[in-house]
Simulated scan of single mutants.
Amino acid sequence: MKRFVLVLILLFGICLFSQTTTKTLFEDGWKIFGKESFIEKPSLPLTMIVYGDSRWGNQTHRRLVELMDEYKPSVVVHLGDMVNSGDNQKEWEIFFEITLPLRSYAFFQPVKGNHEKPDVYYNQHFGLYNYWARVEDYVFIFLDPDTGVKRCESFIRSIDLSGKIPIVFLHYPIFSGGPHGKTQTVKNLQVLHNVFRELNVPLIFSAHDHNYQRIVKDTVTYIVTGGGGAPLYRVEPIEGLLVGAVVHHFVKVDLHRDRIECEVISVNGEIIDSFTISVRSSF
């Protein structure tokens, strides 16, 4: 009997471990539970999924993950607000259970949102704030503006981007026609626009407002993709807004040597926007 109970405990531990184990690209290697190792990374062309703000919308989130899984992405980026309360262990367990199909084979890149606070469980599972990863000539830059806008700028400038194509990911938008677009947090971040323009960043992904937006300013494309399951927010017209949609969705990003192709896919499987960005190539 004791042996049977021990086996059950071991099986439970294996199951829980499989749900929380996550491979995350980090600099030129990868991380798992804080340990660094160097293994084969994705190569071009590759498919990446980007989305945010799943929070407590578990049914919608589950359906979106089912759709994402059809594309077998090499990389999945969650732009924050993975859970509604950062200190609620049960919500984290549900999140890891829902995303397990993707995390079983894809690199999973977390961005800390405001709902990850208090961030005790975020630190336990990820512990990543400002960090970067490189895939051939693409450099993925992941920012946590809660560390300070100046610190984010310094971090971006500390990365060697010569001959590289940077793509930036953060929870809070730089520009938004959603309700958060008028907040001081977003207004403070707008100083980064000049940094992105100076460093030739072609594409920035953010969330926080629960909708979809494509905004172009000075040849820089800003995507707001906060449709991962949380209650939806309206979109109002702002300068540079090309497309806005109030719908649960994710963005499929196909990275090529000379271009970035994006499709925005709704929870119903419909393509609500698509666009291509030509990028320089030093290959």
Rank of each mutant, 00 (worst) to 15 (best):
M1D: 12
K2Q: 10
L10Y: 14
G13F: 15
F17W: 15
T20M: 14
T20N: 11
T22F: 13
E27T: 14
W30K: 14
K35F: 15
T47R: 15
T47A: 13
M48C: 07
M48L: 12
I49K: 09
S54Y: 06
R62W: 08
R62V: 00
V65I: 13
E66W: 04
V76G: 01
V77A: 08
H78L: 13
L79R: 07
N84K: 12
K90L: 13
F96A: 04
L100P: 02
F107A: 12
F108Y: 14
P110T: 08
V120A: 12
Y122C: 04
N123E: 15
H125S: 03
F126A: 01
G127D: 10
G127H: 03
L128D: 05
Y129K: 02
Y129W: 12
Y131W: 05
A133S: 15
E136H: 04
Y138D: 13
P145N: 09
P145A: 08
D146Q: 10
K150G: 02
R151S: 14
S154V: 03
F155M: 01
D160Q: 07
I167D: 00
V168G: 09
F169L: 06
L170T: 09
Y172M: 14
I174G: 04
G178P: 02
Q190L: 01
N194Q: 07
N194V: 01
E198Q: 11
P202R: 02
I204E: 00
S206Y: 01
A207D: 00
K217N: 00
D218L: 08
T221H: 12
G227C: 04
G229Y: 04
P231G: 02
R234C: 03
E236K: 15
G240W: 03
L241K: 04
L242R: 11
A245T: 05
V251N: 14
V253K: 06
V253D: 01
S266T: 10
S266H: 04
S266I: 09
S266K: 06
V267D: 07
V267A: 04
S274H: 13
S282Y: 14
F283N: 09
